[in-house]
Each structure stands twice: as structure tokens, then as C-alpha cells.
Design a protein around this nucleic acid. Structure first.
Ligand SMILES: [Mn+2]
Ligand SMILES: [Mn+2]
Ligand SMILES: [Mn+2]
Ligand SMILES: [Mn+2]
Lengths: 219, 219
DNA sequence: TTATATTTTTAGACTAATCTAAAAATATAA
DNA sequence: TTATATTTTTAGATTAGTCTAAAAATATAA
């Protein structure tokens, strides 16, 4: 049974929520993510359960079945491949790609996905540092930490962002921070958990709202 | 007002019909093209007329307004650009691209269209020889004729196809006919209008059903 | 020019996805 | 452990797009 665009968006939302907050996902959490009312979500959960894409227990919540998880990952794979295409081939900047990828991820053609992947040289990460699932749905996760958990004096490499809104990405651009940028932790302020970060030669003060949205790895 | 995918498909259908059969298009002609019942078409014509995308007179037919024509051409432009992308960059063959382009043509992002066009080197024709409208909606039409109207003894170049179904394109592949192939008219059979065509060193007999679906130009 | 055939529209119903308002279930707190 | 708050579901509507069946308009043919 073919999935509709809307169903795919629900599955993706549920996948992302369960990844952060655990397997069973609440109606309200989904409603917030897909920007719909809880009553609409209830209807959709029944439909997705009928299609064996998730298990749903009234008043308890929903959890993706293997079939549902596979479907969600396929959409995410396409989303991230298209983002790479837009940045690498079409001169989009990393803050412009999400909206378009949100549309392109729903194009149905296994050959297209396969050939796009090959054309891009089988990229491992999207422009925001998120891993690209392979054709079998396997996601290679590297051990990254949040900048907020970094230690003073050490040097790190930026490997990803959590918030990939245009506003946040433009903030990073302004301070010349991108995937691969070296960051040195100069100081941590105990009072508000803000940090002083040295990028190239400049030192920037970053609030907790910033440092909890940047992924880094050591060295 | 944003157009839906369905509206765009109707506009495209009406554009193509009016291009062949004249400005005013009948409900039944549209119904056949979009594979829907006449009653559904009537409903849609009312909606498109409300949106000023076409003029509609009950029982008389519909004709695109300038706004509707522009919208249709933009979809056709995207369709053909994507077809070029699939063939030139992703190793699709010319008989595999239409279905996918049918989906991709509805992606809404002016920047995407613009950058894709540039990435492809501003192509003038799609893989089936159809002209690609420019960003302003201008379509450069070259003077091409049907193979069925060719003269015996003359040499022509294949510049396009009318039927771009997979079956027909595979027939052409089998006989090594593509855009740019030289064709020599050896003989015309008056009885059934079939033709003997020399391609490279081989001579092939083609029925009228074939020769009325191939566009050529002299030389 | 009247009868018949064809085309087109209307009427009413269906599905997918959504909403608001009210009811029911569950969680929390006195 | 009973009352209150929160979450979730149900009931009933709405919109887009579609359908079938019937009615109305137009075209064709005797
Ligand atoms: Mn994205
Ligand atoms: Mn999406
Ligand atoms: Mn096509
Ligand atoms: Mn289409």
C-alpha cells in the first residue's frame, strides 16, 4: 500500500520524536511536530495502525513498527541526499535547503534515489552534519557531543547542528562557523552556562541557547 | 493564490490540448487527458475560472488566461529541465524519465528551477526533442516536420518524437534512432503510407503509426 | 424541423485530511 | 481518595478532488 505525503510526514515526525524521547510517542508530541491538532493526530494514528506502520494503543501512544521505521528512514535518506545535492551542485546555502528538501523527499522513484546517491559520491552526511542512512536503512552514528559539554582549554571540531533553522544557521555563518570549523573553549561561565569560544583568531561569547545546538567532536 | 498539484496538471493538460486543437478546449478532451470523468472536469473548470487561470463558458469550453498559460508553461519548463537532469546526470534513459518528471515538475522553488537550468547549461531541448521554455515563458520553436511528410530520396535528421511512451521509445532504441540520427527515405508505399527508411547501413520498414510520431528536419 | 444522439452539467455521495467543541480517560494534587 | 487538571478521543463539519446517475443543453440526422 502506497504512503501519502501526509502519512510520510507523520512517520518522519514520530521517528524523530521517538529517537529523542523514547519508543512510545504521545498524541500531543506528534501534534506539535506536525503542526496539527491532537484530534487530527488521533485519526491519522488509526490509519497508520491499520496500515501496520505503527502500533497504537488508545490513550497510551504510538510506536513505529519495523515497516514504519523503514519507511521513515527512507524519507530521511531522501531528504538529506537532496540537501547535499542542493548545496553541492546547485549553490544553495545550508540555511536554504530544508524547505525544498521537505518537498523533494516525497518523490517516489527508487532509481532516482539510488542514482542521486551515486551522483553525489555516496555522501555520509548532509550539509548540517546529520548522517545519511544507506540504502538498507543503516545509519552510521559518530560519537559527537554538544558544545555545552565541552571542556575548557580543549580544541574541538564542529560536526553538526541540532537547530537547523535559517536564523540559527545565519548566526553561525556570521561567526564563520560551519561543519569542520575548529573551536577552542576559552572559558565557561558557571552562572548562565555561557561560553567564550575561539574561532580562528576571534573569540565569541555564546549563550547556552547557542552551545546546546552545536555538535562537536574532540580534536 | 497557490496552485495545487491537481490544478497544475489540469492547466498543463489544457495547454497541450489547446496547442494542438485550438484555443477553446472541451470538457471531454480534458477529461480524457487527465484521466478523469467529465463531471470532475466541470468542477475543476469552475475552480480554475474563479482563480482567473482560465475563461470558462458553460457548455462552450475553457481557454487559458495569460496567467493560466504562464503557470502551465512554468510546469512544462520544470518537467523538461528535470528530464534533462535525469538523462544527463543520473543515467536514466529517455524512456524512463517521464513518470519521475511528472512528480518533480510540481516542486515549488524558483531558485531550484533557476539553478537547475544553470547547472544543466541552459539546455534548449528535453531528451525527446521538445523545446524548454525559458524563464520568461518564451518557447523557441524550430521548423520540424513529421517523418510521414518526408520526401523520397532526401536525408533528414531526427529532432524529436510525438509519442514519448516507453514502448515507442524502446522501438526507436531497437532501431538505433535517437535525437540527431540521420534518416534517408528510400521508399514510400502509397497503399498504407508505410516507408522504407535507411538508418546508418540498415533499412527499416516503418508503418504510418511510426512515421507520424517522429519529427525530422531537412539535411 | 422534429427526433435522436452526444456532450456537459448538476445532484448527491465518498475519501483524505483537517478543524472545533464536547466527552471520556488518565494523571496530579489536595 | 476524592477533586481538579491535563491529555486524548469522539462527534460532527469543512475542503479538495473524485465518482455515479440523472437532468439539461447542444449537435446531428432523418
Ligand atoms: Mn532538513
Ligand atoms: Mn515532508
Ligand atoms: Mn515528459
Ligand atoms: Mn504532473
Amino acid at each position: 500500500m502506497a504512503t501519502t505525503l501526509t502519512e510520510e510526514n507523520y512517520l518522519k515526525a514520530i521517528y524523530h520524536i521517538s529517537h529523542t524521547y523514547g519508543d512510545v510517542v504521545s498524541t500531543n508530541a506528534i501534534a506539535e511536530k506536525v503542526d496539527a491538532k491532537a484530534s487530527s493526530v488521533t485519526d491519522m494514528l488509526k490509519k497508520l495502525a491499520d496500515k501496520q506502520l505503527l502500533d497504537y494503543i488508545k490513550y497510551k501512544g504510538a510506536s513505529l513498527t519495523e515497516k514504519g521505521r523503514k519507511t521513515a528512514i527512507d524519507i530521511i535518506r531522501k531528504h538529506r541526499l537532496w540537501e547535499v545535492f542542493l548545496v553541492e551542485k546547485l549553490k544553495f546555502s545550508w540555511d536554504e535547503v530544508h524547505e525544498v528538501a521537505e518537498q523533494l523527499e516525497h518523490i517516489k522513484s527508487p532509481k532516482l534515489t539510488k542514482e542521486l546517491d551515486a551522483f553525489l559520491g555516496f555522501p555520509k552526511h548532509d550539509p548540517h552534519g546529520d548522517p545519511i542512512p544507506n540504502a538498507d536503512g543503516y545509519i552510521h552514528r559518530t560519537n559527537k557531543i554538544m558544545l555545552s559539554h565541552a571542556e575548557v582549554g580543549k580544541t574541538y571540531t564542529c560536526v553538526g547542528v541540532i537547530d537547523s533553522s535559517s536564523e540559527f544557521l545565519k548566526y553561525l555563518d556570521k561567526h564563520h562557523i560551519g561543519i569542520g570549523t575548529k573551536l577552542v573553549v576559552v572559558e565557561k561561565e558557571a552562572f548562565d552556562q555561557s561560553m567564550l569560544i575561539k574561532i580562528a583568531s576571534k573569540t565569541v561569547a555564546m549563550s547556552k541557547a547557542i552551545t546546546t545546538n552545536i555538535y562537536i567532536k574532540e580534536q
